[in-house]
Amino acid sequence: MDNITIIEPRKSSNKINFKEIYRYKDLLYFMVLRDVTVIYKQSVLGFAWALINPVFSMLVFSIVFGKLAGVPSDGIPYPIFSYAALIPWTYFANTLNASGSSLISSAGLFTKVYFPRLIIPLTPVLSKLIDFSISFVILILLMFYYQYMPTMKLFLIPLLILILLLATAGLGFWLSSLAIQYRDVKFGITFAVPLLMYAAPVVFPASLILEKYGTTAYHIYGLYPLTGVIEGFRAAVISTKEIPWDLIGISLIGAILLFIIGLNVFNKLESNFADVA
C-alpha cells in the first residue's frame, strides 16, 4: 500500500519531521551551493571579501582598543587576540543577518512549492562556513608572525564550531520565523548585532568579567554561547593560554538550549508562514 499523506489543521503538538528534512538533503546541498556560487559573482575581489571584513576590523580594534584605550588582552598581542575572536564573530553576525531575513527573501519560494522550510534559514548557516574557513588563512599567518606554534589544542576547534553552529542555527530559526510575521525583527537584527558584539568578549577578554564581577557572573556570562566559543578559539591558537573548559561547557549548554528553542519556535510557527508572508 502506498504512503498516505494526511493534511490537517496543524496542532501545536506536531513533531518536527526530521525524516522529511533528511529526504530533502539534496535541496539543502544545492541551496548552499547556490549561495556560495552566487555571492561573489561579478565582483573583482571575489572571495577576498571574506578576509576584508575581519582583517580591517582587527586593524581598527588593535589601534582603538589595543593602543588608544589600552584594553587588556590577557598578555596576548592585540591583533591575534582580536582576530581569533573576529573569526567566529564575523560568521555569527553575517549568518544571523542572512538567516534572520532568509524567510522574507524566500517568500516567493515557499509560497509556491512545499519543502521543509527549515532548509531556508539553515542554508546560510552552512554557506557562510566558506567565508569562515577562508578567514583562517590570516589567523595562520598571524600565528607564524607572533610565533605561536600550533599545539594539540587546535583539536578543540571542531567542538567550538559545533557550539557556534548550534547557537547560530537556533537563533536563525527563531528570528527568521518571527521576522516573517513581524518585520520589526528584521530591523531589530541589524540594530542588535553590533551591540551583541560588544556583549561578547571580542574586544576584551572574558577574564575581565571574572575580575570585576566574580565567578558566578562569569559563569552566567558563559551562557552567551559566543563567550565560550571566542575564549576557546583564543586558547586553541595561543599556546600559552589555558583552555577555559568551564566557559566552553556552559556555552555548549547555552547553544543547545538556543537550538532547541529555535527549532521548536520555528516548527510551531511554520504552518503560518505562507499565510503571513
Binding site: 502506498d2 494526511i6 493534511i7 490537517e8 489543521p9 496543524r10 509560497t111 505562507a274
Partner: peptide, 21 residues
C-alpha cells in the same frame, strides 16, 4: 491547490493523499 500542495494548512477539514505528490 495551496492546501493540497501543503503550502498552507487548512483551517478545518482533512485531506488524505495516497502516493507521491
Amino acid at each position: 491547490l495551496k492546501i493540497l500542495s501543503k503550502i498552507t494548512d487548512p483551517t478545518e477539514g482533512q485531506i488524505l493523499i495516497k502516493g507521491k505528490v
